[in-house]
Simulated scan of single mutants.
Amino acid sequence: MIREGLTINISIIKAAPEHTEEISRICSIGWRQTVQGVYDEEYQAKNVEHWCKLAHYSRSSISN
């Protein structure tokens, strides 16, 4: 749905360590929505734990 006259301001910034919790949450939700009905809950949980956990993002290229 597009609403006329609606303005959204978006800023794109480099990810920083304080963003890891939200990045992890978004990763988890997005992946689960993508595979919903395709993979069982156990498989989803294992993959979320591996790919979307906080430690993954805090070790990756997110830095000051």
Rank of each mutant, 00 (worst) to 15 (best):
M1H: 10
M1T: 05
I2C: 09
I2K: 14
R3A: 12
R3L: 14
R3C: 09
E4K: 15
G5M: 11
G5T: 08
G5A: 12
L6A: 14
T7P: 03
I8W: 13
N9F: 13
N9P: 13
N9Q: 15
S11T: 14
S11I: 13
I12F: 09
I13A: 15
I13P: 00
I13T: 13
K14S: 11
K14F: 13
A15E: 01
A15I: 01
A15W: 08
A16N: 08
A16D: 07
P17S: 06
P17Q: 11
P17D: 06
P17E: 04
E18N: 09
E18A: 10
H19V: 00
T20F: 10
T20V: 15
E22H: 05
I23K: 07
I23L: 12
I23V: 11
S24N: 03
S24W: 01
I26H: 02
I26F: 07
I26M: 05
C27E: 09
C27I: 04
S28A: 08
I29P: 06
I29E: 15
I29H: 15
W31A: 04
W31K: 08
W31Y: 14
W31R: 12
W31G: 00
R32V: 09
R32A: 10
R32Q: 13
Q33L: 09
V35I: 12
V35A: 07
V35N: 08
Q36P: 00
Q36H: 06
Q36G: 02
Q36S: 07
G37V: 01
G37S: 00
Y39C: 06
D40I: 00
D40C: 06
D40H: 09
E42N: 04
E42K: 10
E42L: 05
Y43P: 02
Y43I: 14
Q44R: 09
Q44P: 00
A45F: 06
A45Y: 11
N47H: 14
N47T: 05
V48K: 04
E49Q: 14
E49A: 14
E49R: 10
H50V: 07
H50A: 10
H50E: 08
W51C: 03
C52R: 02
C52V: 02
C52F: 00
C52E: 01
K53T: 01
L54V: 10
A55V: 08
A55I: 06
A55T: 10
Y57I: 04
Y57Q: 03
Y57M: 06
S58A: 11
S58M: 12
S58H: 11
S58L: 13
S58Y: 09
R59D: 11
R59F: 03
R59Y: 09
R59S: 08
S60P: 02
S61G: 11
S61F: 04
S61K: 04
S61W: 06
I62V: 03
I62K: 00
I62D: 01
I62Y: 03
S63D: 03
N64Q: 10
N64M: 07
